[in-house]
């Protein structure tokens, strides 16, 4: 997943980013509210982790501005404000979840998965598509009940495509999933991962839409 992490405390931000990268996500980090708004206007993220006490523009301001633009990207608030009125204000402003510092990294990962499930309209955490089964909690993928060994980036590409079957994702969109703003990618990286996935899951699993990108058909062929 491509995550926007909005956090003004450099130590916390660095730690969360490390954890996100270890979990196979791409994390972009901004340190103030204005930068967060700019990033949200110019790029697409799968999920936003938002601190409330931010310089220049408060976290709730960022959130309200997002929702006013009908940007439905899931938002999890990460904050030190643990009083009930603050939680209510956060959720009412359009947050999907509210996590009080200090928090557990595994709990954060679980809440991110749950927020993603809700945003994609699935109730079960496990994605099943034909013979493919993907568990976001464990990053385990199986084909016909047989475990398939995927690298973190292969997994990220597969998860992105499986979240909305039928939807075409451009190469750029997939690259965004793999790297943050800063990362440098080789020009054919996405093709390499798609190729590897086709080899491991079957050539017809991922289709190519010429000039547009890649997709997984809505109804799997049996």
């Amino acid at each position: 997943m491509r995550v926007l992490l909005v956090e003004d405390d450099p130590m916390i931000a660095e730690a969360v980013r490390t954890a996100l990268l270890q979990d196979g996500h791409a994390a972009d980090l901004v340190g103030d509210g204005m930068a967060a708004t700019t990033a949200l206007r110019t790029s697409r993220f799968d999920i936003v982790l938002l601190d409330l006490g931010l310089p220049r523009k408060d976290g709730l301001g960022v959130l309200r501005e997002m929702r006013a633009r009908h940007d439905a990207t899931p938002v999890i608030i990460l904050t030190a404000r643990d009083d009930v009125p603050s939680r209510i204000a956060g959720l009412d402003s359009g947050a999907d979840d509210y996590l009080v510092k200090p928090f557990d990294l595994d709990e954060l990962a679980a809440r991110m998965r749950s927020a993603m499930r809700r945003s994609t309209g699935r109730s079960s955490p496990v994605i099943e598509h034909g013979a493919i089964r993907l568990d976001p909690a464990t990053h385990e993928v199986s084909l016909d009940g047989q475990p398939v060994n995927l690298s973190a980036r292969e997994y990220a590409v597969l998860e992105a495509l499986l979240q909305r079957p039928g939807m075409v994702l451009s190469r750029a969109a997939l690259e965004d999933r793999l790297y943050g703003f800063g990362g440098t990618i080789e020009s054919n990286a996405v093709e390499v991962y798609i190729h590897a996935l086709r080899r491991k899951l079957g050539a017809d699993t991922i289709r190519t839409q010429r000039g547009a990108g890649y997709f997984i058909p809505r109804t799997p062929e049996s």
């Binding site: 130590m11 916390i12 730690a15 490390t18 954890a19 030190a80 510092k101 200090p102 928090f103 990294l105």
Partner: peptide, 13 residues
């Protein structure tokens, strides 16, 4: 809270 959060996160890492 902030330094404690940082501590807790670094320990988890």
């Amino acid at each position: 809270r902030s330094p404690l959060t940082a501590l807790s996160l670094q320990l988890q890492l």
